[in-house]
Amino acid sequence: MIFVWLVGAIALLVLVGWLGLEWQYRRRAGNRLAFAAGQWNIEAYAADHYQIVGVPELINRTPASEIMVPELTAETTLLGKETVDNLDVKVTITPQHPDAEARADGYWFAYIVKLQKRTQFKVQIDITGPEVRSLKALWVRVHYLTYGPGGRFPKTGHVIVPLQFPDPAMAPPWRDTPQAQVMPVPTHLLTHLDTPTEVVKRYASPHAQPGDIITLGETPVAIMQGRWRHPSTVQPGWLARRLCYYFLPTSSLATACGLQTLVDLVGPWRVFWAFIGGTAKKVLLRQGGGFYQLAGDQARLIDDVTGTLPPYDQFIVLGPESPQLIVDEIEKATGLGAAIVDVNDLKAVKIVAASPRVNRAVVTQALIDNPAGNADEQTPLVLVRPK
């Protein structure tokens, strides 16, 4: 009997020890080395040569571990109206570590990012060729290897840099609607380098007058906030892999990665109970849309891959953060009523947020035919002039 009790006690201790180790392991963050795009500038803008320089950062957000970066490289994709085959691209990476000088030969030596610290590196991209002025944007992928307690993991940071800029003084034509005139306003390809207020000031304000309303697409606003994720960085869990099959094929939640982004935003339990509640409403009351009501606004605003213009068609774009603060800031800075909207070609207009001066009924009617377009028009702003 004593032997049995002894074996049981040892087994219990082993189980408790194993559970303790597992609990501690699950609390560990792994290799949480984050990429921040930083500031990018066009240093040279000649007829046959562009030079783009950026200074991204690597930030160690791992609570109690140092993370090593043994490898770091960058590759580029050029987007333009013409062929890019005649263009030559050279990429130079120079470490700017706070405690170690860069090598003259350009070699990236393994570097340790210490606890809660960060490091920078300079990326210089020279584009040379006769068709350089046809380029619309530059997509930079920074590939870096993290090495630490979590193992050896490759990661990629993404940066989009606009290279073509419409003349803000050029006034697009107005279009008539029953209650207002509308002007779709072209801009450059919006990126993390932009802010909604400055974009409105630059492109819409020259054509506006008192009483006008400026509307911004919710997806471009989210892009300016950096709220986009490449599917390779999304790890679909048990819930997302199973529930995604129950959404319509046209839904941005109909893929495991698309739905997982919502899980990451609002939590698995809210998604699960929204699914249960939405199913019950549909079965018992014959009413759809219950899931989106229960899961929150972000469920409707996520755009999956192919949901927007290149190169963001390769990413999952989330809904904007704090949209009310953004429209209030635009109204204060420009004097224009402002609204962030979600509009499609099916005559569906959702006003995500609107400043106090906005007549929501007028905006809804003015945008019913989606003057901004759903293709690559690149007119994320629409100026509305009530009649």
Rank of each mutant, 00 (worst) to 15 (best):
Q181N: 04
L115D: 09
V159R: 08
K136F: 02
T119Y: 03
Q164D: 11
T306Y: 07
M224I: 08
A102D: 12
G290D: 08
G289R: 08
I326E: 11
Q51A: 12
W238D: 12
T233L: 00
F109I: 07
T219E: 12
N370F: 08
P166C: 10
L248Q: 13
S251R: 02
V91Y: 08
K347Q: 14
R300F: 03
E331T: 02
G267H: 14
R61Q: 15
Q51T: 15
V327H: 11
Q116E: 08
K350R: 15
N374Q: 11
V327G: 11
R286Y: 07
D167S: 10
T73N: 09
A339M: 01
A366S: 11
A222F: 15
D194L: 12
W23M: 08
P70R: 09
R227W: 06
A180M: 09
R227V: 01
L19C: 10
N60M: 05
R61S: 12
A100M: 14
G267Y: 14
T94Y: 03
Q314Y: 10
L262A: 06
P70N: 11
P231C: 04
V263T: 09
T364N: 00
L325C: 00
G278C: 02
G373Y: 08
P236I: 02
L216E: 06
A46T: 08
K347L: 03
A29L: 06
T261R: 11
F165R: 00
P173S: 09
L259D: 06
A64W: 05
G148K: 00
P268I: 05
A169E: 14
P356I: 04
A204M: 10
R286H: 13
P63Y: 05
S252Y: 01
A348H: 11
A110N: 15
R286L: 10
L248R: 13
V161N: 13
A180C: 08
V7W: 15
W18G: 15
G277K: 09
T197E: 15
P130T: 01
K117M: 06
L189G: 03
V305H: 08
V234F: 01
V140P: 07
L243V: 10
C257R: 03
Q365Y: 00
L325N: 07
Q124C: 09
V185C: 06
N370T: 02
I112T: 11
G30D: 07
L284G: 03
K201P: 02
